[in-house]
Amino acid sequence: MRHLFKIDPAKPLSEEAIKRLLQSETDGFIIGGTDEITLENVTETYECFMETDLPLYLEVSTPDMILPLADQFLIPMVLNTRDTTWSHGLHVEILRKYAPHVPFRRLSPVGYVILNKDAKAAIKTGAETNLEAETVAAYAELAEHFFHLPIFYVEYSGIFGDVTILKAAKAVLSETKLWYGGGIRSLIDAKKMAEVADVIIVGNLIYENLEEALATTRVSARASGRGDNMIK
């Protein structure tokens, strides 16, 4: 797995766009967002993509993202915030209420470091975004060696990130996989980040320029003939 499309339930997609995304060479899909997330639009979006044979993840940012019919869930843990609500507080509250019904084997916890100060996710979670490469690398080591997380996600959400920071994180990871998302608006951008990250995520570009978004799949494992799994 090298490339994932991120689908925002709050943003409409035409039937033709959905068809082309499903027929693309991406390695899978994430359904997730920050604003205007409802059970209705999450369900509708999931049903549009559920026939795919590719991995289809729900990124659980609110309880409305929890669908019993889903096979795989990504559970965000924001590491660069002092508000423990977003690192583990909400998780504890959900487990306190619903632990007997939680499908633990279908969950993949994800350690997020959000680095765009203007991103809605950064503002909502109170993320400390002015971080040097050494600090991000320390968070990466925290994710792997302390929390044993399968994924460390460097998220710039709306702007193209600093490849130096990405390289610093990659240099200290061996088991935990490095995912990158943010500001990819061309195949050139995709290739630049795919040279460092294990997986790149393309989201906003789907809604800005579908043709360019589809072109980014040329970095995918399917396009290159690779079949590696970047979670396990």
Results as ranks from 00 to 15, higher is better:
M1V: 13
F5D: 04
K11M: 03
P12R: 10
L13M: 12
A17P: 00
I18Q: 00
S24G: 06
T26F: 00
I31C: 07
I31H: 08
E36W: 11
I37M: 08
L39M: 07
L58I: 09
L58W: 05
V60W: 04
V60C: 07
P63S: 15
P63D: 15
L67V: 06
P68E: 12
P68C: 05
I75N: 09
M77H: 12
L79V: 02
N80W: 08
R82A: 12
T84C: 05
T85D: 13
G89T: 11
L95R: 14
K97P: 00
P100T: 10
F104G: 08
L107T: 11
S108N: 14
V110I: 11
Y112W: 03
Y112A: 01
V113F: 01
N116M: 00
K117R: 14
K117T: 10
A119E: 00
K120Y: 02
A121V: 14
E128G: 03
A133S: 15
E134G: 04
A137W: 05
E141M: 14
L149G: 06
G158F: 02
T164P: 02
L166Q: 09
K167S: 13
K170R: 15
K170S: 10
L173D: 06
S174E: 15
G182Y: 04
R185N: 13
A190L: 10
A197G: 06
I206G: 06
E208T: 12
A213K: 05
L214Y: 04
A215D: 11
V219F: 08
S224E: 09
R226S: 13
D228P: 06
N229C: 12
